[in-house]
Design a protein around this nucleic acid. Sequence first.
DNA 1: AACACGTGGAA
DNA 2: TTTCCAAGTGT
Length: 350
Amino acid sequence: MTMIQKPPRSPGSALPADPARPAGPGPHSPGRHESHAAVPLRDVHVRITDWFAESARDLPWREPSCSPWGILVSEVMLQQTPVVRVLPVWRDWLERWPSPAHLAAEPAGAAVRHWGRLGYPRRALRLHAAATAMVAGHHGEVPRTYEGLLSLPGVGTYTAAAVAAFAFGRRETVVDTNIRRVHARLFGGTALPAPALTAAETRRAVELLPDDDALSVRWNAGVMELGAVVCTARSPLCDACPVLDACAWVGAGRPAPDYVPKGQAWAGTDRQVRGAIVAVLRDADTPVPRSVLLEAPVDLGMGAGAVLVPDALSALHRLRAPAEQLDRALAGLLADGLAEEADGGLRLPG
DNA sequence: AACACGTGGAA
DNA sequence: TTTCCAAGTGT
């Protein structure tokens, strides 16, 4: 059963990216060309939010008791990192540092160390800097506005909107990769959104957002969830989709993507070397001499079982990275603040 | 605007 | 085995 929804604000214009949508002025007439099979936008709102209420995953940062800080931490950890890998690290962080002040009281290196292998450890650094900024300028609390959030290190347009919406119930236009994909298929009729966020996409997201604050929050969460678990990038589970009959992409016969995503190079990159170096520093109790990082261990011909080299270090050496690349990677880490010199060696900052 | 920036699981 | 991709941000 569906609730009576507050009528949407009268749209000043039709959805620009949907060619099937009437473009002219005149009375808004729900039921006509709202989407592929004439499903009114308000019905799409209801169906997706009802679906979300019924089948949303139980994630700890969605608990009503979760603090804004917990939500902010989750959003940063989830930037380019899957939920399943975030879960254990998020729990550890929130137990260890239940507020921004708790994290700010630690050296930045602690944040990087407990980031584990989530990837992009600079995010840990920025979360620490954000915590410090909140203590210095926001009474130790997470800012409640989009602008305040956006001013924090590591918080961009997506995260600022997401935290404002999910932590503070604000009506924000949240646009992430899941939402972009759902919008592209449901309203745009294409398999994938453009390689980069376009102004037209943002405009469409603004116009799709329900007027009601509470409904807008559930809409943002629901569309994101739909993209994450049903309208997935590779093999969408259309059978489980609450708006299948409204989908422009399905209506068009599921045309293939019209561009090829450019893969992320990895083997042999500086990123790989940086990652291997940070892994060594993360596991080290004391500063690691530069020579140990740069040089392959000398084979002393010792007997079997003499494990002198930690896993992370042997992994680094196995890369066989040219000395020049190691130097460059190290310099980059120092410049980024992910490492610092101490006692003739390198360590995490702090 | 295009790139750099980690990591590991699934296809 | 290789490629793709996951709740992006900063420069």
